[in-house]
Design a protein around this nucleic acid. Sequence first.
DNA 1: TGAAAAATGACCCAATTGGGTCATTTACCA
DNA 2: TGGTAAATGACCCAATTGGGTCATTTTTCA
Lengths: 205, 205
Amino acid sequence: MITVSIVEDDDDIRDSLALLIDATDGFSCVNTYRDCWSAVKGIDEQLTDVVLMDIGLPGMSGIEGIRRIKEKHPELDIIVLTVHENDEIVFEALCAGACGYLVKETPTARLLEAIREAHHGGAPMSTQIARMVVGSFQKKSEHLLTSRELEVLNQLCKGKSYKMIGESLFISEETVRRHLKSIYKKLEVHSKSEAVAKALKDKLV
Amino acid sequence: MITVSIVEDDDDIRDSLALLIDATDGFSCVNTYRDCWSAVKGIDEQLTDVVLMDIGLPGMSGIEGIRRIKEKHPELDIIVLTVHENDEIVFEALCAGACGYLVKETPTARLLEAIREAHHGGAPMSTQIARMVVGSFQKKSEHLLTSRELEVLNQLCKGKSYKMIGESLFISEETVRRHLKSIYKKLEVHSKSEAVAKALKDKLV
DNA sequence: TGAAAAATGACCCAATTGGGTCATTTACCA
DNA sequence: TGGTAAATGACCCAATTGGGTCATTTTTCA
């Protein structure tokens, strides 16, 4: 028996979800919440296996709610159930600790399967979301930097000093400085740390 | 009709995969390769929709092969098909440009579905892999750093100088230095760029 | 083959950083 | 309620960095 909590402000949707889950063999909807505050508090006392969570809620944002719930109960699986298929929100939700992301139009059969999947260590997502997530790993191949500059930037991201980079690449420290100047200009940054931050965030290395 | 290439060094597996795909309605196995070199060259001349790729190959590593193929044909979908369910390799493959990752034991029905899914903009993965991928977004909540130190580190990752961090957090530059010293000791680093690299790689911020 | 791009190296100087020591106040927990 | 951790601030000094200018060689490609 998989126990489920629902966080959803729309009364109709919340009730019909609860009804569906309770009516299905192997599932039990233990409690429902209309906002994040009560969910964070309620789940503390009445823990469930899976949480279905809307994130377009009034009051505390769903993202913050996910963060707080996962903070106290890391083993719990949270599936986001929402109308937003916006890039930013998907990644924020996953970073906050959601393990799955479905749009509300998901057919009930798939929704039940997703709950099962989440509880068994999976990460239920729509195919579009999955591609977005996987795509976020791919490097941006900016032809902006030359290959030598990329090598230097790479070393920089390992925390090396000019001197050490020079030794690694068998060039003088001065040449490292030359490359760095060029890199800074192209990336529009003014310090090592900014360059490293940009390189890692934009997956240049 | 979805066209498929196969890269796989084991003759038996390669042939039976090709046979399966050709025997299925809506699929056509256009060519097969026993190593990455010939695949990179061959796919140039005979482009397909999807590539099934083993990555435990002799010669050029499958990862490098993925990188080279995607470099020339970014629109092509590469599904890794392997026995390795090793963390590192999964992420390397995805970073290199693979859109899906399946283990070789995958039932044929699921494999065909995965090819279809990849071609329609999805990212076919086993449930365990999907969770690994999603899990990689979650922050490591190291209690190592104090909350104030995390704030400072956060600013540092935006490329700010001590002076600017001090202004942002309404503390003196000297106090920023104090926190940085403590952060460096805890993270075992010795420069801003190393700290930024560690913070971003380990998702501390 | 000849121009453009890339890679190499040097010098100067001000600003920033890294590491050391010392000290006070606030917050929290046992 | 008393000790410990956290947060704040200061000074010193050597090393590193960032930005400027200048110049040569090698590679690449039209």
